[in-house]
Design a protein around this nucleic acid. Structure first.
Lengths: 194, 194
DNA sequence: GTCTATATAGGGATAGAC
DNA sequence: GTCTATCCCTATATAGAC
């Protein structure tokens, strides 16, 4: 956990992640990384000797760890599944800034590049599996839970796509509310449309 | 509708579209276009004087026209809404090759570039609006139809993301079947998972 | 650890021969 | 209409001074 001029590796990775999110893997360039981090190319290669590939791999690893701790583990270990499910929706809404931020795992999933396929696949499998477990403890049959978990995980990704396509982050919020209602969770304020 | 050595502009646009789908906008390079079309750079600039931007714009226009004719119009004009809805799911499954092909509109929606925002937004608005009309003629209230249409349109996008993330095209097929069942449409063969 | 060259390759785009 | 040659720019990556 070494520091560098007061900037932690985590902070640098967050800057880099933002570049990948905005421009995609191919569009993320060293000059954009230098602008986002304030570090020169030389410094970036000092941190990440293997360059762009390593940056992306570490960003994905970082994302995975965040979701493990904040979303997936609570889904699996909270005694009351409703607590884990509520934490999932709240964490998801915050992480994606209510639909303004996209999912880097989902974005990279759409490219044919196979370099990060394993990390991406594991992320989504773990999400669905941990969600399915919580749904089963809430009373769902196994087959229903597996299917509903797949629907919710894919539904969240689609909501992010549509929210950005429409330029309306509210689309994302509405989809989350819809899922919460189906799961009998407190949905918060829900402004029914006209 | 001029030809060029037997290759129509439509055929060339399809080759170009495939490159955009596989590599994204930033990753789609002139050399990849030449490989995919068999045309040299000079020829490509003869067809598309404004270069890559024009290629993408025409590809999106082409996609819009296909969906207008095959999906959106039937949803709006078929007397029996079930016919239009069934055609939508069949057309969608075929177009995306049962989940193996991604949605270029959805992919570009995730980039921050605003160049194609209008085309992308109109595509998704028209899809939701035409679907909502069919659902209303099937008996849905207006607010339910609007919400369900949003859920289905975003659900299809999410199904494509998850299918590619998991490397299992079956994910896409399962999500479509799930929607068809909810709409009381013939779902075809449905292999319930264990 | 950070920076400024610098090397090499490939990007988009144009000109002009055929 | 198609190609090759060429231009200029930016890309990734490295070397070495500080």
């Amino acid at each position: 956990m070494t520091e560098s001029g007061g900037r932690s590796r985590t902070a640098i990775l967050q800057n880099i992640a933002e570049v990948f999110r905005q421009y995609g893997y191919e569009g993320a360039s060293l000059s954009r990384f230098t602008a986002a981090t304030g570090l020169g190319k030389g410094s970036l290669y000092n941190f990440f000797p293997e360059g762009k590939k390593q940056m992306a791999a570490e960003v994905l690893e970082h994302i995975q760890q965040w979701f493990d701790a904040e979303i997936f583990s609570p889904l699996e270990t909270e005694e009351d599944p409703k607590v884990g499910l509520t934490a999932m929706f709240e964490g998801t809404e915050q992480y994606f800034r209510s639909g303004q931020k996209i999912c880097l795992m989902g974005l990279l999933a759409l490219s044919v590049d196979t370099a990060f396929a394993v990390q991406i696949r594991n992320y989504f499998l773990r999400w669905q599996e941990s969600l399915s477990q919580a749904l089963q403890r809430q009373g769902c049959s196994k087959s229903n839970a597996v299917d509903l978990a797949e629907e919710i995980v894919s539904g969240i990704q689609g909501a992010l796509v549509l929210a950005h396509a429409r330029g309306e982050a509210d689309v994302f919020k509405r989809r989350l509310v819809s899922f919460k209602v189906r799961l009998d969770l407190p949905a918060g304020h829900y402004d029914e449309r006209q």
